[in-house]
């Protein structure tokens, strides 16, 4: 490893969850803490201030590049990530990257992987990536096919819970009650309706593929570990990364990581790993919070907190969603403190 990354023990806190915990062995330190990290997405990209997707993608791809010695190709679905990184004449990508269409990233990636096999270069690994819309909706057919064939592709979904690039419309990953441009906060059931949507990680698991995980920009170490692990496995793999979108969610740009954290700590976004269709690990909640803590700072949920008359019913239903996750994935355990 390059010298600079092996920072001599200088100053650190016991057990900190920070990016650079120098108490850890050098090889266990985060990729992001390294001055030598590849910055898969370099500066100058046009993501909004505080974009969680820009961050999540750099986290994931830097980790993948580290894990493969930079032998990785990325295929990108249409969406914010694609648009903000590659407006002619500038690209922010530092690795070989291909954008084809909105709904075909998984298939294109299968093609790249097939080509690498045919060319006798199986060491070159392939990542497909897209937003929640490009993954759970329009790209779902290709994704399911890639899973089912167990093609050697890691698919990463950056879930910001709506079609952001086209102006915040509902996707099948939009949570209940959330306001989007196509689920406006009007009428007696404002926002997205309850009882809809799909859980892609569980669907991915149902394909019986070797590895499925959820991750979040709020837990870098977990995310990196999962990407790294995924890169050691051959076959179809899926990582679903939770990435807040300040623009679409109506949140403050500095709150991106905080909101991602609250989503985990409330139980609304369970972080877990599954192998061959079985959940093998989940990340316990460290400091449980009520869903309100997560919902309140976001304007897309503002209608739930109207002055004087909070929508207690629907807040309770969202709490029930969180509680169900907590139960299902056993998120409240004594090992909560990492």
């Amino acid at each position: 490893m390059p010298n600079e990354t092996v920072q001599p023990i200088k100053f650190y806190q016991t057990g900190t969850l920070t990016v650079g915990n120098r108490l850890l062995d050098p090889e266990k330190r985060t990729v992001q803490a390294s001055g030598e990290r590849t910055n898969a997405i370099t500066s100058g990209h046009r993501a909004c201030q505080g974009c969680g997707e820009a961050l999540g993608a750099r986290y994931a791809l830097d980790a993948a590049m580290r894990a493969t010695g930079n032998r990785v190709v990325a295929v990108n679905a249409t969406g914010c990530l694609e648009v903000f990184t590659t407006p002619y004449p500038e690209t922010a990508w530092q690795l070989p990257w291909l954008h084809s269409l909105f709904g075909n990233a998984a298939a294109v990636a299968s093609g790249v992987a097939a080509a690498m096999r045919a060319k006798g270069r199986p060491e070159v690994r392939v990542i497909a990536q897209g937003g929640d819309g490009g993954t759970t909706d329009i790209g779902f057919g290709c994704l399911s096919g890639m899973f089912e064939r167990n093609d050697d592709v890691l698919y990463i979904c950056y879930d910001n819970e709506a079609y952001m690039n086209t102006g915040v419309q509902r996707s099948s990953a939009t949570p209940p009650a959330a306001r989007t441009a196509t689920t406006p906060a009007v009428g007696d059931k404002p926002g997205n309706v309850f009882g809809t949507g799909k859980n892609l990680p569980l669907i991915a698991m149902a394909h019986g593929i070797p590895y499925v995980a959820t991750a979040s920009v709020a837990d870098l170490r977990d995310l990196e570990a999962k990407v790294q692990k995924a890169m050691t496995i051959r076959g179809a793999r899926y990582i679903h990364v939770f990435v807040p979108c300040p623009l679409g969610w109506g949140s403050a740009s500095q709150d991106t990581i905080k909101l991602a954290r609250l989503a985990i700590e409330s139980g609304l976004f369970p972080v877990f790993e599954a192998e061959y269709g079985e959940v093998v690990r989940s990340r316990a909640i460290r400091r449980k919070v009520p869903v309100e803590d997560y919902l309140k700072p976001q304007r897309r949920f503002a209608h739930l907190f109207k002055a004087g008359k909070p929508d207690v019913d629907r807040i309770a239903r969202l709490q029930a969603v969180a509680d169900a996750n907590i139960k299902r994935f056993n998120l409240l355990r004594p090992d909560g403190d990492a």
């Binding site: 806190q13 990016v19 650079g20 803490a33 993501a47 961050l55």
Partner: peptide, 22 residues
């Protein structure tokens, strides 16, 4: 090491890591 280093950078790399714009 339990010290939080209140108000003084302790080179935890957080800012370096969390910046979406490098």
């Amino acid at each position: 090491r339990r010290c939080l280093s209140c108000g003084n950078c302790f080179e935890c790399d957080n800012c370096f890591g969390v910046c979406p714009d490098n």
